[in-house]
């Protein structure tokens, strides 16, 4: 039972970042100068006591300057905007309202740091274990293991897998979060767009 409440305590964190493992360094090198990241995602969650997998899909948008947008389209419409001002949420097309949801902030922080080139500026919360035999089929893979005791009680590992381009890590295509109770969450990105151009007014509007 206490582990359950410790997990809720995790909600109160603002998580730091990952480490500078080679593959991640390459990923960040690839993302240096990127002003805009867009992809479609599918999130598939397997939870004990829930017979059916929890599947959702939508669009992720990221700009180092403007923050992150996680737009779930199915099975319900939820837009979440995370920026320096906080977390804002809109349900079923309604107005964006500021919410206090540190759990979302945690995940958004991890995603933002993976997608940004500022990894060297944040403290490491994870041990990085490269998965060497993963360089197959033009893919790279690393495993993040939480360092501190409390986080270990909540998360077993985060596996990050991406595409190799000219033998260099190019982009993330799968994130697998495993927790200690054996549940896992798999997030898959498709249709990745990386842009180094200044954002158009329309693109900027999505973040507001």
């Amino acid at each position: 039972m206490k582990r359950c409440f410790l997990m809720i305590c995790v909600l109160f964190w603002h998580v730091g970042s990952a480490n500078n493992d080679l593959a991640l360094q390459q990923l960040h090198a690839a993302h240096t100068g990127v002003t805009y990241f867009e992809a479609r995602f599918e999130q598939r969650r397997h939870v004990k006591f829930i017979a059916k997998p929890l599947v959702s899909n939508g669009v992720i948008l990221f700009s180092p300057d403007l923050g992150l947008v996680w737009q779930v389209n199915q099975p319900l419409s939820v837009k979440t905007v995370i920026n320096q001002s906080g977390v804002f949420k809109s349900t079923q097309g309604g107005p964006l309202n500021k919410v206090k949801d540190p759990q979302i902030k945690i995940i958004a922080d991890i995603l933002s740091e993976l997608l940004s080139a500022e990894l060297d500026q944040v403290n490491s919360q994870f041990l990085i274990e490269p998965v060497n035999d993963a360089k197959q089929n033009d893919h790279w893979q690393v495993k993040l293991k939480p360092k501190n005791t409390l986080m270990k009680k909540a998360i077993q590992s985060i596996d990050i897998q991406g595409v190799l381009q000219n033998d260099q890590a190019h982009s993330i295509d799968t994130i697998v979060i495993k927790n200690q109770s054996g549940d896992d969450t798999v997030i898959q990105f498709t249709g990745v767009v990386l842009s180094m151009k200044a954002l158009s007014e329309q693109q900027r509007g999505v973040f507001e």
Binding site: M1, M7, R45, P75, L76, T80, Q103, I107, D183
Partner: peptide, 21 residues
């Protein structure tokens, strides 16, 4: 119920024990 679904399908994690409780 919508808020519960947002939690199930949105960003962020939870585990089975938490769901059960």
């Amino acid at each position: 119920i919508v808020r519960a679904k947002e939690r199930l399908f949105g960003l962020g994690g939870f585990d089975a024990q938490q769901f059960l409780n």
